[in-house]
Design a protein around this nucleic acid. Structure first.
Lengths: 410, 410
DNA sequence: AGAAGTTACTTGTCAATCGAAAATAACCTA
DNA sequence: TAGGTTATTTTCGATTGACAAGTAACTTCT
């Protein structure tokens, strides 16, 4: 026999047939709730009887409940009975291990947060992860009244092994390299709760498409660009995280936007990150205030990106200049994304996104210098629309996706 | 009812259940032939009885035939009976409307070309398309002995509307704008044969993944970069053409590789295309020979890319320099593709690919100047492995994909 | 040559599920 | 309250794959 190229063939049988339809119906309920059975039948193309049976199965499992009725048509007739996802049937825990602090939350099936905790990072990763495990366990206990805990989604930064939950390179956390987060957490939690790991920027993208305005617009191809100490990004193609051949997709932070530019931490010259990361902005601001030491904020003050954004909003000229300059470079960096992937939307995250009204014009203008108008208008560019950190929402979506995702066919 | 976000829900019923399995089995036969029933059962996970029944249906439809037997296992036992796709059951016509000439071919289900014709383009698109329609019709007549003609796949260049088969901007064909190729061909052909259109670079990518060595390697994410008068590219993600939000994905030709670079035809500065297109290479070569008019080839001679590649292969210094320089710029241009999409492979097409041994080193080296070694090794870079123009094979794949492609689920 | 063992393929039966259509429920208007 | 309308449920039949019990074809050993 010739070499078998074992793609994940998933052949269909009755169970899968049922699963496909149930999944579609469940997703329709999730996205359209409240919604009636006929409406589901109309949207999905399933027969009404089939929808009824599927709903009955959902009732039996407690996945869906009925509440409220709609209005009759002008001609009269029975009122449609509204269906809802039972959000307390299952829940998810999301953890966002950020550069300086870690967020964790308990979420219901609708993505509503029932608990949100914040714990500071510490220098010793093992000690920190022990604390984190305790916090997670307290959420797990909280989750008990729920019928089911879908799992724990963890957002990691740096170079990671998402499969095993290993931080290969935790420089920006001050943790050194090869921290087996998955192994450590699993040993502390000691329960059979699934753990999922993924890169923060990718989870941000997932969070946006599950819970942000890109979801409302029905976008399926979205790039999230996260500006912080570095510049990371996550790509959603066809509604799913795109990983690339060796999990390397979305390293837009290191594309060269000007070969004559400054040296980047990666050793190359003119990377987007070298121009537009928060570090670069802070440096730029320092440079400017150094020239004019009469400035209201002394260069000795500890300056970070938050401060600069704050100052810029207050109208401080140097800060404003600094972030506007960052915005210009960022615009250049978006050009290859638009030309290459042509996503429906690019979502910008990080502190600079909090000053959106101040930078939007600059970003669009500089991007327009490198992208033709036709392309520029085909991709919407806007700041994150989520109220909590997008990667936390993504971590939750990662868990929920397990329940709502289609069983992969072909 | 809330706004219905009508994604293409494809719910499952018995017919789809059957179709999915048939498709999977058919694909396994196509990729593994010759192959026995047990082997199919093992690969797909279907029960042997189910496979038997599916094969029986294929026999009835004449899609598959049995020929030859395998060897018994060392322990003895019945010999497996080999199955093959019946390549003459169906066929496809592929058309590649290139910049200067047009290729068309009749292909069987295995992608073997049974006829290959070449016709020169003419200035009047309507006249040309009339001639083309005649040629297509003669292939259709040739196809008659086949049981079935799957369709006609047409590769177009320039800015196009793939859905309707319209060349929106046919500058590089000398045809002006808005040529309704689809409408015209349909009216001339007058038979109910499906016509499919797609951009040439995307079809090249599809051709490579269906018939090239990327197929053999089982790659699912591939970018094809086509260097000709311009620089186009096609993206395959998860085995399928990726279009982007407004069909704009893969415009890597206009990403900026050096803002201090020359002005591009698009009006921006430093586009890859301005550095690495055949036109740029020809200009570069002209420049070099002008400096040394003692050169063996006079600058008055009509020079095109083919000539330069030819000369370079013969060891002509200026030609060699010219294409090596192009290769260096090309390498820069591949960097954002690797960092952004991190595909398993980038396939280079066009005349410069014919001089691969002369340019490979340069491409990899310059790419390495902008990409970290880890990333560089994660993406293979090689020239097209097809023996005819990749976009012609892609046009054929476009038709075959209709038969072999999965019915889209979810 | 024949028996025993092995593997490939086929067929019969069963259970699951959907579609179609009929039945029922709930509502409106006149 | 009758008649019309719409929503939901139930019933029945068809299709299909899983499972298991055949049958076919081959090898090896005696």
């Amino acid at each position: 026999m010739k070499k078998i190229n074992l793609k994940a063939f998933k052949t269909a049988n009755h169970r899968i047939l049922r699963d496909i339809n149930e999944l579609i119906v469940l997703n329709v309920i999730r996205e359209q709730q409240p919604v009636s059975r006929v409406a589901i039948a109309e949207i999905t193309g399933l027969e009404e009887g089939t929808v009824s049976r599927i709903i009955q199965r959902f009732f039996r499992r407690g996945l869906v409940y009925e509440a409220g009725v709609g209005t009759s048509t002008p001609a009269g007739g029975r009122k449609p009975r509204y269906l809802h996802i039972n959000p307390t049937k299952s829940c998810a825990i999301g953890v966002d291990i950020g550069a300086i602090e870690t967020l964790l939350a308990l979420s219901d099936l609708n993505g509503h947060l029932h608990q949100l905790k914040k714990i500071p990072n510490t220098k010793d990763p093992r000690k920190f992860l022990a604390t984190l495990a305790d916090e997670i366990l307290s959420l797990v206990r909280l989750a008990n009244p729920y019928n089911e805990l879908g799992g724990i989604g963890v957002s990691l930064i740096g170079l990671i092994d998402a499969e095993e939950g290993i931080i290969l390179e935790g420089e920006n956390l001050g943790w050194g390299s090869y921290i087996e987060v998955g192994k450590i957490l699993k040993s502390k939690i000691k329960q059979d709760i699934p753990l999922y790991f993924e890169n923060g920027a990718r989870l941000s993208a997932l969070g946006e498409i599950w819970f942000g305005s890109t979801h409302l617009s029905g976008f399926r191809n979205v790039v999230f660009v996260d500006i912080n100490e570095g510049v990371g990004s996550g790509i959603i193609i066809n509604g799913q995280i795109y990983n690339g051949s060796r999990n390397g997709a979305g390293e837009f932070g290191h594309i060269c936007i000007d070969p004559a530019g400054p040296k980047c931490s990666c050793g190359k010259y003119g990377c987007l990150e070298a121009f537009a990361s928060d570090l670069a902005t802070v440096d730029r601001y320092r440079e400017k205030t150094k020239i004019k030491p009469s400035s209201s904020v002394s260069q000795n003050t500890k300056i970070d990106m938050s401060t600069i954004v704050e100052l810029a909003r207050e109208g401080h000229a140097h800060a404003l200049e600094a972030i506007k300059e960052t915005a210009r470079y960022l615009g250049f960096g978006l050009a290859p994304i638009i030309y290459g992937l042509n996503p429906e939307a690019i979502v910008i995250g990080g502190k600079i996104a909090e000053a959106w009204p101040l930078v939007e014009r600059e970003i669009l203008d500089s991007c327009g210098q490198r992208v033709s108008p036709l392309f520029l208008e085909s991709t919407k560019i806007f700041p994150s629309t989520l109220h909590v950190r997008p990667c936390l929402m993504g971590a939750i979506a990662l868990v929920l996706a397990q329940r709502f995702a289609a069983p992969e066919i072909v």
